[in-house]
Write a protein that binds this DNA or RNA. Structure first.
Lengths: 109, 109
DNA sequence: TGCTTCCCATAGTTTATCTATGTAAAGACC
DNA sequence: GGTCTTTACATAGATAAACTATGGGAAGCA
């Protein structure tokens, strides 16, 4: 197991965060860390490549804006395709998480 | 999300399976698939490298034996270090799985 | 002036999994 | 006797994801 993140879940978590509001990268990381009670920590070296990834797939779009603090930041917005994708990923994830629980708890198949 | 497995969980699942009994690779794959109700499918190209990985770390040991079918197979047994490791990995996994659920369900941190 | 926080980004490495492929033996079927 | 399926192990090469390390810059505060 890695340290701060379950591999394969980052894109999903990013998309989920963006359903609440358009956000810049830094805010996404803060949000995930806060909601997860400090369990999920997204390194910048994971976050920004991931944002480029999901944008390249058409799941989010982005634009430069000014933050409330008067700083420039790239705001990401989830697209319709992104919402569709999020639904698929969540379903797949829940399926696997439930399956793993069955294995770990030693329940009968 | 990948297709058949949550990345980062395979070693843990293998170790968990081996707490039930020593098993050969093929049996481990069958066991995981069955207990997970066909959700978890471990490809051979993932399984055997993983078995070498956990053996190299000292979490399992192995020996050639004869199966009930009179075939030769390499049986893997979990070690004390492996049980310790399994406990750590399960705890870490449960922590992250719970954190991800909080994000996906939109609960407050 | 210097420190901290906010914010973006990339290069290079590591790790994990998958695809594809090869070997081989047992048993069933024809 | 020949073929197919199942059981069983293994590796090479590709792909993808995440990490470490590093760089820049602007705002605000001491």
């Amino acid at each position: 197991m890695r340290d701060e993140l379950l591999p394969g879940t980052l894109d999903m978590l990013i998309l989920k965060a963006l359903t609440l509001a358009p956000m810049h990268g830094y805010a996404i990381a803060q949000h995930l860390q806060q909601v997860s009670k400090d369990v999920l920590r997204v390194e910048e070296g994971s976050l920004y490549p991931a944002l480029q990834r999901v944008q390249a797939k058409g799941w989010v779009k982005s634009e430069w804006r000014e933050t409330p603090n008067r700083r420039r930041a790239r705001y990401y917005t989830i697209t319709a395709a992104g919402r569709k994708r999020l639904g698929d990923e969540m379903q797949s994830y829940q399926r696997m998480a439930a399956a793993i629980q069955r294995v770990l708890l030693g329940q009968k198949g």
